[in-house]
Design a protein around this nucleic acid. Structure first.
Ligand SMILES: Nc1ccn([C@H]2C[C@H](O)[C@@H](COP(=O)(O)OP(=O)(O)OP(=O)(O)O)O2)c(=O)n1
Length: 827
DNA sequence: TCTAGGAGGGAG
DNA sequence: CATCGCTCCCTCCTAGA
């Protein structure tokens, strides 16, 4: 397994020395603390207290109080008897046996002792999961309820709570956000001088992270010879992580348990301990921070970071630093092991890390001293001992693509790099991937990887937000899927709201059972072999509105025309993220209407303006698909006949309720503008009188050569071109003196012709309304200008009224839709 | 020639 | 019993303007 180049434990002596010094330092610190606070009562005299897991107050605070009040703090619990008391919120399942005889108390015990100034009996504060606690709290544990399926409301959360990949992604996103936050706030944590490539890069990664942490929780030594794997259960479950004893049998991360057990019948399966992974990860990043040895620490994942030192350092110091990091992390994490690769580039650091594992470190320098330390190697050495697949960004597919037609066995990087010139790489793999590989072959970082160092702001910025579930997806009907999509969108919307962002492009991606795949795949409730399909949709306005997004997503699902029973996976993505403006923030409109009295009679309500129109209800059966196809066409291309939709058997939803962009939402939006417009209306008319400004003095932009006929505007037939023109028109007139009255009436007549075109013209009308309101939003800074008020008024009094009328015409849900009332006066 | 959508890939 | 196959990002390819 190990060829001696990265012999484990070589630095052990340094390790032990380090610890002796470390303990003395801690003791000295504690003594000093006591001296300073000499007057405090020695409540915890004789107590040796260990704090386990996440606590409130946190570990550091508890430690301070315990030490200041005469106790001893046990940093690392080698044996249960090392401590007289263990402080924890609850006892991890894995520790129940081991700690059965311990006094495991909640942090509240410490606080209560402090308050009363004396040592209190611990039993009333016994932590959940101890036998003592079981005597006090009558079995508050919530045993597994009925298993949830994808049709149940709680499924998504339930699934995510157990999904390792979800945790991995969530942690990573949080770490990136935290990094960026700090960087933007303080300009700290990243490199400042980017002129030259940094001197030393240390890639630090836990050995078999989950396996080690779960192992320790279950009472195993971190370097145990017992083969361990972390997995959920039975035979078709994934091995998330296996320790190095298990790897000697050929077991690998991601392998199925059945295969793993074939390779190693003694394999011990351990449960996931997500809380513990998080705790260890926190300690890990704290250590890197506390060492104060780096110019930058970049998060890679929950168990992995890249640390950079941007000043010259001799090889010996690099080695010492590696030893120090490894010792410190082990100390602070109850014995977890990190390995480290140190090199002048990201790629070499990665390869060095690979060779350093398990339980070691490796420093790569251009010209190592011959016959020197085995922990110091040259780039050439790494290339001779690592394979193509070890290079970052080179996975199975790319490796196969590159080596297609070459003899099949494993290749070292040194060998493969001899086979291809830069241009051959580019021919085979594409311009960017080819060039990248050529760089990697020279030990240089490609452009993309170096972005992390060169432009962390862009590199760490979030560009999308998505959620997907490809397990347990088994539906019988489309309404069930609709309900699921609603929940998934709701889930994402709450995330995007936490981020204070909006999206203007959304994507639905589905996995559909391959025609040759069995109905039920080998993996229980797995997706099996699937074909994947995706459909993206641009939203006219950036939004965070679940109704709008949900409608789009459900429409997109119909476009992909996947039979409900064939669906095996669902993903929803939000792209084109922007910071939310205040108008996207919590909606006052949504407050429960019934509980709040309207201030005025329906006079304020939009329905007042349209009551004279008889409601005409169109129902439709054929899918939204037709709508989209129509939507794509320009206005002069033949549109499909709309009537077939009305004659078909009714669906329960109204036509408008199913429009990809929910008209109701649109109108709610406009209603707010209406409020604003109303309040500014008087002002603006007053101004007009004062200054003698009249609309007709505006520059006349539109040609008055309108030919009445099949819905054209300014002789344009293409909807896109019309929109362009109108956009330009609005934008220009907003900047200057507002729209010319004649232009406005030409435009109004165009809108009226759209309306008389029937429901099939509704999208065009809607998109015009959206366009105007979009322009107003874009030019919000002109909010005080006369021109702005004029457009706003036009939107509200002309466009909105027409839209409103159509709504009356084409939907049955008039009451619900228009019974909105902005609760602006609510305290 | 450029763009956008969609497919695919990699990492952890 | 099972099992929890996510999520981000980049790159490539191709159809259509
Ligand atoms: N297919 C995978 C790969 C990884 N992980 C999780 C479990 C790992 O513990 C953790 C870190 O991934 P690593 O690639 O760093 O793998 P390990 O830490 O397990 O092993 P190694 O020593 O090779 O780094 O991510 C996972 O659940 N499924």
């Amino acid at each position: 397994m190990d060829d001696g180049h990265a012999a484990p434990n070589q630095g052990f002596d340094g390790y032990r020395e380090y610890f002796v010094g470390k303990r003395q330092l801690q003791k000295a610190q504690e003594d000093q603390l006591r001296e300073v606070c000499g007057a405090r009562p020695s409540i915890f005299r004789g107590c040796r207290v260990h704090v386990n897991g996440r606590t409130d107050p946190d570990r550091e605070e508890l430690r301070r109080e315990i030490v200041m009040h005469g106790g001893t703090f046990v940093h690392y619990l080698a044996r249960p008897s090392d401590a007289t008391h263990i402080v924890a919120e609850h006892v991890p399942t894995a520790k129940r046996r081991l700690w059965r005889v311990c006094k495991v108390v909640r942090p509240a015990w410490v606080l209560a002792c402090l308050r009363s100034g004396k040592l209190l009996p611990w039993q009333p504060y016994a932590a959940a999961g101890t036998e003592a606690a079981a005597g006090i709290v009558a079995s508050a544990g919530s045993p597994q309820g009925p298993r949830l399926t994808c049709k149940d409301p709680g499924f998504i959360e339930d699934f995510f709570a157990k999904s390792r990949l979800h945790h991995l992604s969530t942690w990573k996103a949080a770490l990136r956000e935290k990094f960026l936050d700090r960087y933007l706030r303080t300009n700290e944590g990243a490199l400042n001088d980017l002129r030259a490539p940094p001197a030393h890069i240390l890639h630090v990664d836990f050995d078999c992270f989950f396996a080690t942490v779960s192992g320790i929780k279950a009472g195993y030594q971190s370097k145990t010879e017992v083969p361990l794997a972390v997995c959920h259960g039975g035979s078709s479950s994934d091995v998330a992580s296996c320790n190095y004893a298990a790897r000697e049998c050929g077991i690998r991360n991601g392998m199925w348990v059945s295969k793993a057990q074939e390779l190693c019948p003694n394999l011990v399966c351990l449960p996931y301990t997500y809380d513990a992974y998080e705790t260890v990860s926190n300690s890990f990043y704290e250590v890197l921070e506390d060492l104060k040895a780096f110019d930058a620490v970049y998060p890679i994942s929950v168990d992995e970071a890249v640390c950079v030192i941007d000043r010259p350092l001799d090889t010996l110091s690099c080695q010492e630093l590696c030893i120090r990091i490894r010792a410190e992390v082990a100390e602070r994490t109850g014995g977890c092991v990190v390995s480290i690769g140190c090199a002048p580039s990201l790629v070499l650091a990665r390869l060095a890390l690979k060779r350093a594992k398990p339980d070691g470190y490796l420093v790569c320098v251009k010209e190592p001293i011959k016959g020197g330390d085995t922990q110091v190697v040259s780039p050439a050495h790494l290339f001779e001992t690592c394979t193509l697949r070890d290079l970052p960004g080179i996975g199975r597919a790319i490796a196969e693509k590159l080596l297609l037609g070459f003899t099949g066995h494993e290749h070292t990087i040194a060998q493969v790099s001899q086979l291809f010139s830069r241009s051959e790489l580019i021919t085979r793999l594409g311009s960017i991937t080819g060039a990248k590989l050529a760089d990697l072959f020279q030990g240089l970082d490609d452009v993309e990887s170096s972005r992390m160092l060169r432009n962390p702001r862009a590199y760490f910025a979030r560009k999308s937000l998505s959620a997907e579930i490809n397990w347990g997806i088994r539906f019988d009907s489309v309404p069930e899927i609709d309900a699921f999509l609603d929940r998934l969108v709701q889930y994402l919307v709450s995330k995007i709201n936490e981020l204070c962002m909006t999206t203007s492009q959304i994507v639905l991606k589905i996995a559909r059972r391959s025609s040759d795949a069995p109905i039920e795949p080998p993996k229980y409730l797995g997706m099996g072999d699937c074909d994947s399909f995706s459909k993206s949709c641009q939203l006219g306005l950036a939004t965070n509105n679940p109704g709008v997004i949900s409608a789009e997503i459900k429409a997109a699902f119909r476009m992909l025309s996947c039979p409900a029973k064939e669906l095996r996976g669902i993903a929803v993505q939000f792209l084109k993220l922007r910071e939310a403006s205040t108008s996207h923030m919590p909606r006052q409109l949504r407050l429960p209407f019934s509980t709040i009295k309207p201030l005025e009679t329906p006079k304020n309500r939009m329905k007042a303006s349209v009551t004279e129109l008889p409601p005409v209800v169109y129902k439709r059966a054929t899918p939204i698909k037709d709508f989209f196809e129509r939507h794509k066409r320009t206005s002069n291309s033949p549109s499909p006949d709309f009537t077939h939709m009305m004659s078909a058997p009714a669906l329960c939803e109204s036509f408008l309720g199913e429009l990809p962009t929910d008209l109701a939402e649109e109108i709610r939006r406009e209603h707010r503008i209406y409020q604003k417009a109303r309040s500014s209306y008087l002002q603006s008319s007053r101004k007009k009188v004062e200054t003698g400004v009249h609309g007709n003095t505006s520059e006349h932009i539109l040609e008055n050569s309108e030919i009445l006929g099949p819905i054209t505007f300014q002789n344009l037939t293409s909807q896109e071109k019309i929109k362009s023109l109108v956009r330009e028109w609005i934008s220009q007139t907003l900047r200057s003196d507002g729209p010319n009255h004649e232009d406005l009436s030409l435009f109004t007549s165009y809108l009226d012709r759209l309306i008389s075109g029937g429901p099939r013209r509704l999208p065009a009308l809607l998109s015009m309304a959206r366009l105007i309101s979009d322009q107003l939003r874009i030019h919000e800074s002109y909010g005080d200008k006369q021109s702005f008020h004029e457009w706003e008024e036009y939107l509200v009094r002309v466009v909105l009224v027409r839209l409103n009328r159509c709504k009356q015409l084409y939907t049955q849900n008039v009451e619900i839709l228009f019974d909105i009332y902005p609760q602006i006066d609510r305290p």
